[in-house]
């Protein structure tokens, strides 16, 4: 074979030249995002990670993390976890039932678009404006409170109820929690195929059996995943609680701001450690959400 030893392509031909990868212009488009992420996410996180392992003089220490296990701080985390759990569960269940009724309950289609529009707005309505809105409505001299007292003769504050307690804060949080649930769970409910219900009925299943064996297990990853997201959403809220209670209710985000602002207390390194605790809880929440969401997507595609 005379050509056996010939090179596949002669030197100097275009195919023999080393291929030089060119950097595409597409990368330029994401530079602002990368810059933003570095300045406002990566750098501050790195700063608080380092700061959480330092004392006031900048020396390396684990003391900040040891303080996290003090009774006061454990109680603070306990409050945050309790409020987050309650609002995630209540908002999750209420949001799911509402979304299911509107999407699969045979109600007029216009209700669905109205609810989705409201949810899009309400899920982003948080912080100082939300707290003020509730104070003006359900506060001691709020519009609704006065209306109930003067027109219907019902004094909302006659019993134990107060907007400025843990229960009040949970009610306020629910205002953005259940719309968020509706927005995230709606695609999962849409993914429930009509054929599954019909197939179940065809094999003799009652409505209860369909929900127990088919619909709920299929929706469960989405339900749990979304509730975890609601938990994280509530856990990270600060402005609403601060504006509503003036820091009276001790939750982690308020505890962090107290350590940073230094009106009474000032220990930014402890604040960093508290924030690290939050980062860990949020990371667990997001990981669990992602895992459940992946499972749900596989079922509902």
């Amino acid at each position: 074979m005379t050509n056996a030893a010939l090179p596949l392509s002669a030197p100097g031909t275009p195919s023999a030249r080393p291929v030089r990868r060119r950097i595409g212009w597409g990368w330029l488009g994401i530079v602002p995002f990368l810059l933003f992420a570095f300045l406002f996410l990566i750098a501050p996180t790195a700063y608080l990670v380092v700061g959480s392992f330092q004392n006031a003089k900048g020396a390396l220490t684990l003391e900040n993390f040891q303080q996290l296990f003090s009774p006061a701080i454990i109680a603070t985390y306990g409050n945050s976890i309790e409020i987050s759990l309650v609002t995630a569960l209540a908002g999750g269940i209420f949001g799911f039932l509402l979304a299911y009724a509107v999407i699969s309950g045979g109600l007029p289609g216009i209700l669905r678009s109205a609810l989705m529009t409201f949810s899009g707005v309400a899920s982003n309505f948080a912080g100082v404006p939300l707290a003020l809105a509730f104070i003006f409505t359900l506060g001691r001299v709020g519009l609704f409170t006065i209306f109930m007292r003067t027109v219907l003769g019902v004094d909302l504050y006659a019993g134990d109820f107060s907007l400025y307690t843990k229960l009040g804060l949970e009610i306020v949080y629910l205002y953005f929690q259940f719309p968020l649930m509706i927005l995230i769970i709606a695609p999962a409910i849409d993914g429930l195929k009509k054929d599954w219900r019909e197939a179940a009925e065809n094999m003799g299943a009652s409505s209860f059996q369909y929900w127990r064996h088919v619909a709920l297990p299929i929706l469960m990853p989405s339900l749990l995943g979304t509730m975890i997201l609601l938990f994280g959403n509530s856990f990270g809220a600060q402005a609403t609680a601060y504006q509503l209670t003036g820091g009276f209710i001790d939750i982690v985000t308020i505890a962090i701001s107290r350590q940073m602002r230094g009106d009474v207390l000032y220990d930014p390194n402890l604040g960093y450690a508290l924030a690290m605790g939050m980062v860990v809880i949020m990371a667990i929440s997001i990981t669990a959400y992602s895992l459940l969401q992946r499972r749900s997507e596989r079922w509902l595609k």
């Binding site: 195929k193 599954w196 179940a200 003799g204 596989r298």
Partner: peptide
């Protein structure tokens, strides 16, 4: 007591 096979299979994914 009528069995049906669907176009989309309709198998329960869970």
């Amino acid at each position: 007591n009528v069995g049906m096979v669907f176009q989309s299979y309709a198998l329960f994914p869970n």
